[in-house]
Design a protein around this nucleic acid. Structure first.
Lengths: 337, 337
DNA sequence: TCCCACAACTTACCCGGTTCAGTGATGCGG
DNA sequence: CCGCATCACTGAACCGGGTAAGTTGTGGGA
């Protein structure tokens, strides 16, 4: 099947290619009557502008890129990324921007992908996740002048806009809630320690515990996988002075921790209270359902996409904080016995 | 920063644009010495061919499309799609093909997206998942002559290649295993009934149960979500003649089923054995870990991508069966009390 | 010595939009 | 009634690669 082009429309309408282009793009230069005629012909023959031709003539590629730098076995089970992606799509789809995805193994590969995408003019901007301290991607993005939005932070990303959620406030709320229930020995199993938001959470956790006079408030670093979550939980529970509550940096590790506790014959929440970060169906699926720090990941993604589109349009975008995180109490938390 | 073009290379090498194009694409028409010189200059200045220009001049867009038509809350937690995507990337990335993603709400929207992508020349082919009986996407893909590969089946997709896994064999194995353990009352909680592979599984389940003389082998339709999984499980367990084993069409529903059983005071596997379809970290995360029908989803995706790339290259591709599904016994299955 | 084949290029046009510099036609003020 | 601005549109150049057709230059065979 042959694809219709603006030349076809021009022929049918008895005008030049240029006039068709003006009409389709809402530019001045054609009369209202002609514009309507052209638009109805375009509609009739099912015209879609060739994205390559459009991108070539200096316009946008109408696509944004996202690299995912986590092992496949985590990507699959972590609701986080898919939630984010659905959010992006809500905004991108509305403007018929495409989302281009690439799974990579290392930050170095991410940089390579950015360079290639830029060279190929394949995308107009990128969404950057899993930001680290002194992230190597930031200077590259600046050098290439590639519009970008960073998810996570706050941290130093120069002129590149950031979106983050109030992790410090959230963990403070969780700790206060556990203390209010009567807990004094609270531990935390964190995500990958290099990530900026992990560091922010760890700092906030230490601060609130110090402020409330909790000692023994340790953070065990893990990597978001169930295996590491189990291992960290076992380490915490076999110690002599075991915690009565554990906060996990994601839902997968929290579920793994729950399984370890049950395996060791501990009752949840009787012997151990559990709080998960990021509420997903996973948390309400298990028994008992997990108390979680909820946030609207999809809305978070939508906001990030919107910021990126603004950045692509040359509008200056500032750093913004996404919608609030709130504690959703469920069956996994209770006063300690 | 200005992006280097073949004209820049041509100037530096003292040859014409045409010669550079031949050299970069491995075409005959330049001497080995010149080719090497051109390639080294390209390397040196970090040249990447503008994908728009390339796509415009009749060549490929070097991108394939994937539409996801499931509600966001399932996409997030189902390891299936992300596993598939990682698999695609393994093959696509190696050939620097991009993967373009679009989340949609209905099959009608999927058709629209296919049409738009085709009109925009944005992609060279699509990967079709969640195939239904008389799927409306198939005739459209044929009409547009858009290269495609269908994941799921077998079923009637005309000239479009399919990849499926041996669902019938897998469920037969699972039922035989449960019968060998001593179970006689086996039920199944299925995925969305419209999907072709659900129907294939249901048929195979009925066949094997009939062959083994099991009556009462009912299938309750659900939709892959934890909520529906819980509901179906409750329906099965409150009945007078309750099953001693349940097979679930995905891992999420199986985990939900486990939670329902525990909530009702039933012991797993003592009172109820559970088998999950598709093994993911989720299955080994819970307590007890779930016996599962495992398959290498990532390899499945990689094979699908490879078939699609072949189809794009004009090679005729046949229907293929992906790697075997095998039963992984874990703690959730045992002889009934 | 001449002719031909062939390698090694160059030239020029194509893809399909975007955009800028024209070109008539029209309207309007003085 | 003239001059000028404005509108509605045309024509052509352009983006950056791909590629068919044309042009050299060289060597070999007769």
């Amino acid at each position: 099947m042959k694809r219709p082009t603006i030349a076809d429309i021009a022929r049918r309408a008895g005008v030049s290619k240029g006039a068709v282009s003006y009409a389709l793009n809402g530019q001045p230069g054609v009369s209202e009557a002609t514009r309507k005629r052209i638009l109805s012909i375009a509609e009739e023959i099912g015209f879609n502008a060739n994205s390559a031709a459009r991108a070539l003539s200096g316009a946008r590629a109408r696509a944004v890129g996202l690299t995912l730098c986590r092992p496949a076995r985590i990507l699959g089970i972590e609701p986080w990324f898919m939630g984010l992606i659905s959010g992006f799509e809500a905004e991108l789809g509305a403007r018929s921007y495409a989302l281009t995805l690439q799974v990579v193994a290392t930050p170095e590969q991410e940089v390579e992908v950015y360079r290639r995408w830029w060279g190929e003019r394949r995308i107009d901007g990128v969404i950057v996740t899993d930001i680290r301290e002194d992230d190597i991607r930031i200077p590259v993005l600046q050098q290439l002048q590639l519009p970008a939005v960073v998810i996570g932070g706050p941290g130093d990303t120069g002129p590149i806009a950031q979106i983050w959620s109030d992790d410090a406030g959230a963990i403070t709320e969780a700790v206060r809630y556990l203390v209010a229930l009567g807990h004094h020995k609270i531990a935390r199993v964190s995500g990958v320690p290099d990530l900026l938001h992990t560091q922010n959470r760890t700092k906030a956790f230490q601060n609130v515990c110090a402020a409330l006079g909790l000692d023994n408030a340790i953070t065990i670093p893990a990597d978001y996988t169930g295996e590491e979550g189990s291992r960290a939980t076992r380490r915490l529970l076999i110690g002599g002075d075991r915690p009565t509550a554990i906060i996990y940096d994601n839902d997968v590790m929290a579920v793994a921790g729950l399984a370890v506790a049950q395996e060791m014959g501990l009752s949840v929440p009787g012997d151990l209270s559990i709080v998960a970060w990021d509420d997903s169906p996973l948390c309400s699926l298990v028994h008992p359902p997990l108390t979680a720090l909820s946030r609207d990941i999809s809305a978070y993604g939508a906001q990030a996409a919107l910021e990126l589109l603004n950045a692509i349009d040359g509008k200056t975008v500032g750093n913004v904080e996404a919608g609030r995180v709130h504690l959703t109490p469920r069956g996994s938390t209770a006063p300690p016995r």
